[in-house]
Design a protein around this nucleic acid. Sequence first.
DNA 1: CGTTTTTATGTCAAGCGCTGTCATATGCCT
DNA 2: AGGCATATGACAGCGCTTGACATAAAAACG
Lengths: 336, 336
Amino acid sequence: MSERSNIRDVAERAGVAVKTVSRLLNGHPYVRAETREKIERAMKELDFRPSVAARILSGAKSNQVALIYDNHSPYYMFQIQTGCWDACKAQGIRLIAQPIDIDDPDVGEQVRGLVMETHVDGIILSSPVTDCAPVLKMLDALDTPFVRISPGTNHALTSSVFMDDAQAADDMTSLLINKGHRRIGFIKGHPNHMASDERLFGYRRALDRAGIAFEPGLVRDGEFDVESGIRAGGELLDLPNPPTAIFASNDDMAAGVLAVAHERDIDVPHDLSVVGFDDTPLARTVYPPLTTIHQPMAELARTATEILVSGGDINHQRLPHQLIERASVAPPKGYE
Amino acid sequence: MSERSNIRDVAERAGVAVKTVSRLLNGHPYVRAETREKIERAMKELDFRPSVAARILSGAKSNQVALIYDNHSPYYMFQIQTGCWDACKAQGIRLIAQPIDIDDPDVGEQVRGLVMETHVDGIILSSPVTDCAPVLKMLDALDTPFVRISPGTNHALTSSVFMDDAQAADDMTSLLINKGHRRIGFIKGHPNHMASDERLFGYRRALDRAGIAFEPGLVRDGEFDVESGIRAGGELLDLPNPPTAIFASNDDMAAGVLAVAHERDIDVPHDLSVVGFDDTPLARTVYPPLTTIHQPMAELARTATEILVSGGDINHQRLPHQLIERASVAPPKGYE
DNA sequence: CGTTTTTATGTCAAGCGCTGTCATATGCCT
DNA sequence: AGGCATATGACAGCGCTTGACATAAAAACG
């Protein structure tokens, strides 16, 4: 194994002072092109890699950021991680992805541990950690910069990136209304997620605007998983006067509704329209493919990371969503 | 923000020597229970967290391990990460999850960067990085311990955990044969994954044992994604004498086959049996739910991490798979 | 009971690899 | 000659571990 070489070896080999190498490493001005080349050659020859630990210890930035999450949707997390990683890679930053349990009474301490032990420069919070008070409080106390992806609550002092969940739900509901639906079932998302409320809000707003009375019986609780979709879908279809369309707050639950429909031999979309939210791969996998809202998860994560790393001013950025029409929607039966 | 306290502060407050605190921190023997308590109290009061950076720098283990992967299946990665994290959490170890691109000519260097910059104590390789020569070579050169999850090739000098893909595929094929199927289509997995070959091997072995001639035309290439399942499934069903059952090398491709079947109004399972592999959530989400092989991904990852951290002898551990029967299989039409 | 061991703690100095502060040395401009 | 931008160096120190010793109390031994 090649011996680990340090900055002193590089300096020696290049015939310069250690400090000069350090300057180059940190992109300081005042390094002649000629010197730079000498040093770079030496670094290459020695396979030199600066130790993050040493840099941290001597007071520099760690060039590490952490992504904290507590989300049990594999696809969502995959997209979020991917977005963060892309941004980090482009900036030469190391990403530490850290799952936590927001219901653990000890979350705050865990976050403190993460920050103090790893010396991360900043933190990206993904939903629903974005609204976990102990974490927010700790981060404030620690004076660690952070940015939030799709937060549900305001926190004026930090940046965030998000999409307009209410508007998206409104768009989707309006689509259904335009197709002729009047009885539209709605399955709520997990209560931990603020987006759940937003989506419900958008659904109601679209209904209001169209002059359709809101009917509480058409709204069911869900938890963002297939099982709750099956349960809620079953309940809605059991209604004496069942809805002609069901809007599930995410694709997984919509898939659950589809499964129920299949079992009961209800033809989707002709006997029942079903729509989801998120545009996960599932939406294109199930039959029929789901009309859904494309949530730009990876872009949100990428943008959040860029904001964090750039360290600029507080920034609240809205990214656009997209309504994806597939084959799970049709006009209700008997509609002209 | 509370000032960061260091080991000296703790020692002072506890009325002991710095060395004693260090002994406790590093689990050395010869620390009285009473002393331990005093120190622990002081640490708590001061919110002390040892700086990983400082420990690394002074030659101790970093208590960090990295998980390296290049797998584009969200669910698989989610399970793997979860397994690793559980094990790490239990051991008080920090996990750095690092995606790489095994086709990048620079992978080796990237891995060197990771190891040298972060000083990780060891590495967990998940498929298909397990068989990426430049990575393996670099890790050997760096003298960094690593363990492989589901490797395809041998590397006698390192530990690994895996399941018996061939046997699982054999089991599944045998199930189909027992139900009366004789013409069984097979969709291969991504060529990057050694498991793909194993599964094909198991399929052929079961066929052989049952005295059914292997028919190359019934085997199609796939890439572990829904699209290739749709394509391959379509091809198989286009055959003049189509199979009565299709065995896809993973659930995603099986879902693709299901979609094709739906589109062509082929009733699954009565007109066509479809089975998958992996037991992803998708398997229970699609209609009908898939008969599949449960691959213990999280357990594999957990075990791998434990082996790595324990630092014991080289260890090759096989974990059991499980055949999950759901509703996507029936005897072929016209079978007594 | 005195002696050897074992256990438990302390002192001190060194050093891991890097960067910050301050100092120094050019050359150039006016 | 003085002032300034440019380019480089010397040195201390970040927070921790470690090794070499020193010492003291408790336990074990004969």
